[in-house]
Design a protein around this nucleic acid. Structure first.
Ligand SMILES: [Zn+2]
Length: 420
DNA sequence: CGCCTTTGACCCGCGC
DNA sequence: GCGCGGGTCAAAGGCG
């Protein structure tokens, strides 16, 4: 599991290099989106195939990603006079786009770095935990959770919960408690490196039965919570999993009821999630995930899981270090970072350590309803890069150019709510 | 017909 | 022991 990570030091580096390319494409894509419409229709990225070199390259990439765009442009630019006019316009636009691209690129860079850092931390934590926890609780497969177990009061029973609030502007992830949940599967929280892979590969074999020591003794108690916040109009976030509502209650402090969902993708899947809205700001949706899936997850779900786990890891690592009750930023995230892509905070409110990841300023999040991500994330370009030899999923999140893409997608997807 | 939501009852831990 | 609050169960009904 950690084998890969060991080399983290190096990884990030070339990752970046490779990433730059991807980022560029990525960025371009976004910029187009922004200028155009928020949604799919947006592909209007009207990059002309002007004369610039970069552009051509960009165009190519775009073409790869979304070929149709270019075509459209072609059509539009049929007339000569129009052509000229458009050219100038386009140039201006291009300039703007470039700027934006740069900004976005930087941001992405940071995000990527943060992510890499998280991964590293995760790996380290994992190792530590394994040693420490050896008997304490078993952390077997899951990574994310284990870090969660740092050393909270062990009474917590519920296991891992993560709330996800999607929003355009901000999203927060909280983690609390430790895991100890079961077997290894872990779904949501798993980092791509280990977890995802595992979960994907291993069917539900373990379900509940698999784990022996686990927590079952008390009756299915788990410990570890991760919460994510985002703003979304939709009632629920589309995370790639299928859920069945099994209960609803009014939270005492909140006029808005809290809904309880259970994963129905597999029969015995222990994963649950709760969705809640803020009374004051109904635009904010809080989704809490708990448990580990005992079945393979769709890419989208996996990505989200990875994100969550990363957040959890960050939280734990941070809490361990600073143990401060107040919000803190992970080491790898520069505080001054204007984008403040992710922020973790420790909440004293709950018995367990609670981490909050705040992506609020991340522009990436800003599209409320984007599309549903595809089940498998193989964007054209990336495919060529990665899918050929490595597992698309895990690899992408881990340390490939893709991961930035995946990450982003994850977030966006998370945000994009499902109009259920 | 299968899957899902709804909804009140029920369970359980916790504080008094 | 009691009340409270959070979480879950399961019957009943809805939907495609
Ligand atoms: Zn599941």
């Amino acid at each position: 599991m950690t084998t890969h990570l060991t080399g983290d030091d190096d990884q990030p580096e070339y990752q970046q290099v490779d990433e730059k390319r991807d980022i560029r494409e990525f960025v371009d894509f976004f910029s187009g989106e922004r200028h155009g419409r928020p949604d799919d229709s947006a592909p209007d990225v009207d990059l002309p195939k002007e004369s610039s070199i970069t552009e051509s390259s960009i165009n190519q990439r775009l073409t790869l990603n979304t070929g149709w765009l270019t075509e459209e442009e072609d059509r539009t630019v049929t007339k000569p006079s129009l052509h000229q006019l458009m050219n100038s316009n386009l140039r201006v636009k291009l300039g703007e786009l470039k700027d934006e691209n740069q900004n976005l690129r930087r941001m992405l860079d940071r995000v990527t770095k943060s992510y890499a850092g998280l991964q590293t931390q995760l790996a380290l934590l994992k190792q530590d935990e394994v040693l420490k926890l050896a008997n304490a609780t078993y952390c077997a497969g899951d990574d994310s959770q284990e870090r969660a177990m740092i050393s909270p009061p062990r009474k917590v029973k519920p296991a891992l919960f993560s709330e996800l609030e999607a929003g355009e502007g901000s999203s927060t992830i909280k983690t609390e408690g430790d895991d100890g949940t079961n077997n290894s599967i872990v779904d949501n929280q798993m980092p791509p490196c280990h977890g995802t892979l595992k979960s994907m590969t291993m069917p539900m074999a373990q379900g509940k039965a698999g784990s022996m020591e686990e927590d079952v003794p008390e009756g299915s108690l788990r410990r570890a919570r991760v919460s994510i916040r985002a703003r979304s109009d939709a009632p629920m976030i589309s995370d790639g999993c299928q859920w069945r509502k099994y209960g609803q209650k009014l939270a005492k402090g909140n006029p808005c009821p809290r809904a309880y969902y259970r994963c129905t993708m597999a029969v015995g899947c222990p994963v649950r999630k709760q969705v809640q809205r803020y009374a004051q700001d109904k635009a904010i949706l809080v989704t809490t995930y708990e448990g580990s899936h005992n079945h393979p997850l769709p890419a989208a779900a996996a990505a989200l899981a990875a994100t969550t786990s990363a957040a959890a890891a960050m939280l734990l690592s941070g809490s361990t270090i600073s143990s401060g009750p107040t919000p803190f930023l992970p080491p790898f995230v520069s505080p001054h970072h204007q984008y403040a892509t992710s922020m973790a905070s420790y909440s004293p409110s709950s018995p367990y350590p609670t981490i909050t990841l705040d992506l609020s300023h991340s522009p990436l999040l800003s599209g409320p309803n984007i599309i549903h991500w595809p089940p498998m994330p193989p964007p054209p370009i990336f495919d060529t890069y990665v899918s050929s030899d490595s597992h698309v999923l895990p690899g992408s999140l881990l340390g490939h150019p893709q991961n930035s893409h995946s990450f982003t997608q994850t977030v966006r997807a998370a945000i994009s709510a499902d109009p259920a």
